[in-house]
Nucleic acid binder design. Structure first.
Lengths: 139, 139
DNA sequence: AAATACTTTGCAACTTAGTTGCACCAATAA
DNA sequence: TTATTGGTGCAACTAAGTTGCAAAGTATTT
């Protein structure tokens, strides 16, 4: 476990400090994407700034990817080891309006959209909102 | 012009107060989607709260739609008179990373995506980021 | 027209997320 | 060891959004 985290940091060329290992460990244990406030809540005592900067480093080094799920707070989830976050590798995200969890639908690629002339796509964000599998069954 | 604004408010069943007419008039003159701070900036003197609530009313009454373009501030643009904001009526939005403007690509419908079993879609947000037509030509 | 109720508006104050500057500490290189 | 670099933590701040409450305006009833 700890080995895989170190490996992940090594692959993406991020110095594996204790803080970073800890943050990545927590992120790896999440079932859903979480935001900075939620990450902060998992620590008894930790500085927001450090977590903030750790996440930022992870994003630029592509250890994790950020998700704008439309709630106003950015969520984060771990990238695959091989992920380079290119447009063709992007997947759809799902935000459940009932349990308010954001899920990576890693198997669902974002479909190509035709853009008007002279528009150049660099990145695409696609979030489907509705009820997740667990919540739709409870109704 | 003023007639069409009143008509729009009437259709969507919003009482046409002076403030609302003014806000809708400003929104109708925008080439791009704008946020609350930008709307506020167009007034010499106006209260943020009132504008905030006006936008909120407009969104719930479907006079305008809100766009989460990933910048952190929600943008707004006018809906068509007939728009009911159903999933099948939704269009793609484009955020230009150079001029930082958000554009409704009203002609480009959001493609259907297959969801995993038991997931129920209520709404979809799709934002393409990159260079808009004007900015891509300038390079 | 007067009295009542309802809606809209404006001020002030607050919350929340994100962000920056600066000082300190740890790890590494010269 | 000293110098340099990078990471961490505190404090303070910004920006956007939000709420409570009171005043003003509009509509409705008598």
């Amino acid at each position: 476990m700890k080995e895989s985290i170190n490996k992940s940091l090594e692959i993406k060329k991020v110095k594996p400090t204790a803080m970073r290992q800890l943050v990545l460990d927590i992120l790896s244990k999440q079932e859903h994407a979480i935001g900075l406030p939620e990450l902060e809540a998992q620590f008894a005592q930790a500085d927001r700034t450090t977590l903030y900067r750790t996440l930022k480093t992870f994003v630029t080094k592509k250890v994790i990817h950020s998700i704008d799920d439309g709630t106003g707070t950015i969520k984060y989830a771990i990238c695959k080891d091989t992920c380079q976050c290119n447009p063709n590798e992007l997947h759809v995200h799902f935000y459940c309006t009932k349990c308010e969890k954001t899920t990576c639908l890693t198997d669902i690629a974002i479909p190509d959209v035709p853009l008007p002339q002279y528009y150049i796509a660099e990145n695409i964000n696609m979030v489907v909102k509705g009820l997740c599998d667990k919540c739709s069954k409870k109704n």
